[in-house]
Design a protein around this nucleic acid. Structure first.
Lengths: 234, 234
DNA sequence: TATTCGAGAATGGTATGCAATATCTTTGAA
DNA sequence: TTCAAAGATATTGCATACCATTCTCGAATA
């Protein structure tokens, strides 16, 4: 076998397959609607079908692929409705988590500041979308973790697993990018002040600004209804 | 083989295993911390280890069991912190979904009314917790589906997968049970009126009343802090 | 020409065997 | 007596083989 006892990856085929397939989907390499054959994936990744099946089931549970009995799995396709659902939930959950973080005392303001400054740097000259995406995800995750609600973190993680959302920064104009980075610094100030209402408001603005940017980029018939501008029930 | 072509369950071993194990966990038959051996489960359910493994991975993705490499899976244990997390999220998401349902025009008021009346009947003399649980879950699910946000439904489904929450009705006093059923009817009236604020408020009250009931039943040191009574950030 | 039926191929579903790893037990010495 | 190390045992992880189901495509018939 290819996995002898000297191979440090021995016993991690399923995890490897999962990461591999997930990356292909989030990067857009496997477009929505694409059928994923177990045999092909197994051959490409270099493992048997068993760990590939396990990986596909995990991805199906997370909503990245659809599983049809006796037919296989295909990469989930995303519509503007999906985007609205994701951002509707984000604009509810992230501000809430941010408000909790403001009063939990668990926020590591130094780390957040570092991340925000690194993002400023990464955006300075030739914005590197991959780096910005990575830093941004860590920033948002750090705030949610400071909320003290582990389930909230898990939920948000699964929600933002949408290629379009994952690469939010590729949709920003330079001006929008600057505003987004400014939001991050303002969030830190609000957290430092322990002002949950301030923190919540900034985060809400932050998310909904992103919503509008992405809607513009993915403009379609549905966007003309501006559904997201309907008054949000309180 | 036991599965010949005449067996309608042919090719659904994994689903069968999933339902079987899930029921055992939600019913409390398999207590938290219990280790689940693939071989034992396979023998009891009457299938091979392969579909059992698939079922266990699904349950792990849903958070009902914990999976440790090369050690197996054990039933998730629940603490009062978990309960607070679940109800914190519920008291945010369910009212929101309810408000959306009030203005979406997608709520099937007849079905909801039927469910509410069936619950009244089931609670009349000798309350049947299993029947009430089933009807209650269908009632709440129907409202969330009427919100039009499919992801919200999925999220809530995964959140309430906690034995203690699943069997909320077993924690109610007769008086609390009556109030809960009254909430259901009021929810229907609010939805019929298309009043999102009303619907949202009732649902919020409904969830938070349940929170308090369950906290009382699971009373522990943590409950003395009454963390859920802290002002919810808006 | 269109439609339906069937044979073959492709694919997923399940069972089983082996290898790797963790846990438990036993045995030996300090 | 206790602790540690090594072997025994049990359990999971992965690969492979086989079976069931579904899809495809062509031929026969209305």
């Amino acid at each position: 076998m290819t996995n002898n006892s000297l191979n440090p990856d021995s016993g991690r085929s399923a995890e490897h397959a999962y990461q591999s397939i997930r990356d292909q989907i989030l990067s857009g390499e496997q477009p929505g609607g694409q059928w994923l054959r177990e045999g092909d994936l197994a051959a490409v990744i270099g493992v048997s079908r068993t760990p590939v099946r396990e990986a596909l089931r995990r991805l199906a549970a997370e909503g990245l692929v659809r599983h049809e009995r006796n037919r296989g799995v295909q990469v989930q396709s995303w519509t503007s409705k999906d985007l609205d659902e994701v951002f509707g939930l984000r604009s509810l959950l992230e501000p809430w988590g941010c408000a909790l973080a403001a009063v939990s005392g668990m926020a590591d303001l130094d780390t957040l500041t570092d991340l925000a400054c690194e993002m400023d740097h990464a955006a300075a000259h030739q914005p590197d979308v991959d780096v910005l995406t990575e830093l941004n995800n860590r920033f948002h995750r750090a705030i949610l973790e400071a909320s003290g609600n582990d389930r909230l973190c898990s939920l948000m993680s699964s929600i933002v697993q949408v290629p379009l959302v994952w690469r939010t920064f590729s949709h920003y104009t330079p001006e929008e990018l600057r505003r987004s980075l400014a939001h991050h610094h303002e969030l830190i100030d609000a957290l430092r002040a322990g002002d949950s209402a301030w923190a919540e408001s900034v985060m809400c603005a932050h998310v909904r600004a992103a919503w509008t940017s992405i809607r513009r980029e993915t403009g379609d018939a549905h966007s003309t209804t501006a559904a997201h501008l309907e008054p949000r029930p309180r």
